[in-house]
């Protein structure tokens, strides 16, 4: 009987903890939607900020975040996929590859503010890109690279070896095999995993503070060497650097709501993509 009791208690605790997590996520979303949705208007989404951001819209921040995501994808995706192909398809287990893997997992554990300072040191100052979309995208790319490599490797591992053998046995070269009979099946999985990582990068503040983010720049960027506003940093500004906190509450929640919609939207797209894929690819 004591066994049965333990069983019930364990079940209860696990149930409680699980629903606590769901509740917290639900509460955060609920709170932001309830307080943020009323602030959303066509003007809020399409106008320049006015009076240091306490009035007007958040268009430059939306556009800025959009550009940063595009830049990060353009840099990190090819690098990450290429690394994963090297690690999974070409390299043989050795001390060297073990060090690469150690490096990747260490990179994944580096605090984001450290990436920010690193990006400032290397891209902004040493390479002379200045605070710019380029420097910010490169910094964010460094941050999401481990996620993309790991996701891409998993996707490559999911392709059965019989696909590789079948292709090689027909006289295909290694690269032909990878390009024609491994990558096409792994690519959707790679993209899904990578999108989840990039969605997170869109919401990061610390890496962009020193590398790209403008406090207030009520115009749209003109080149990749231009600074931009970005939603997370704009939110940080509104929440900490403004004297009249109560009057700009709607601005804060409105910005948070837009950021949340973008990040969750990206995740939802990735999840739908993945579930459709799982149904399609049965070996």
């Amino acid at each position: 009987m004591a066994k049965k009791k333990t069983e019930k208690i364990v079940y209860g605790v696990i149930w409680f903890v699980t629903y606590l997590v769901v509740f917290m996520v639900g509460y955060i979303i609920f709170d932001i939607v309830i307080k943020g949705l009323p602030a959303i208007s066509w003007g809020f989404l399409t106008q320049m900020p006015a009076k240091s951001g306490s009035q007007g819209g958040i268009l430059p921040a939306i556009v800025g975040t959009f550009y940063l995501v595009i830049g990060t994808v353009a840099i990190a995706l090819p690098l990450g996929i290429a690394s994963a192909i090297y690690l999974n398809e070409y390299s043989k287990p050795s001390t060297f590859t073990r060090m690469i893997r150690l490096g990747i997992s260490t990179l994944a554990g580096v605090p984001s503010i450290v990436f920010g300072l690193f990006g400032m040191g290397l891209f902004v100052l040493a390479l002379g890109f200045g605070k710019s979309i380029l420097a910010g995208s490169l910094t964010l790319a460094c941050m999401v690279l481990p996620t993309i490599i790991v996701a891409s490797e998993e996707a490559l591992k999911a392709v059965p070896d019989s696909m590789r053998e079948g292709s090689l046995a027909l006289g295909a070269t290694k690269w032909q095999t990878i390009y024609k009979n491994v990558l096409p099946y792994a690519l959707p999985g790679m993209l899904t995993g990578s999108i989840l990582g990039i969605g997170r990068a869109a919401g990061e503040t610390a890496p962009i503070i020193f590398t790209v983010a403008a406090t207030l720049l009520p115009r749209l960027p003109r080149s990749i060497f231009d600074q931009v506003m970005a939603l997370p940093y704009h939110l940080y500004m509104l929440a900490t650097q403004m004297p009249n906190q109560t009057t700009i509450k709607p601005m804060q929640y409105g910005t948070a709501f837009v950021l949340l919609v973008i990040v969750l939207g990206v995740d939802v797209v990735a999840i739908i993509f993945r579930s459709r894929l799982r149904r399609k690819n049965k070996w």
Binding site: P160, S162, M163, E165, G166, S167, A169, L170, G171, A172, Q176, K180, N181, Y185, N281, W283
Partner: peptide, 25 residues
Amino acid sequence: GMVFQKPNPFPKSIFENVAYGPRIH
């Protein structure tokens, strides 16, 4: 040429499976 123990058709159409080798070459 080689035929394996477990049939391993590629997740492509029947046509593309057979055309795979000739295309490679």
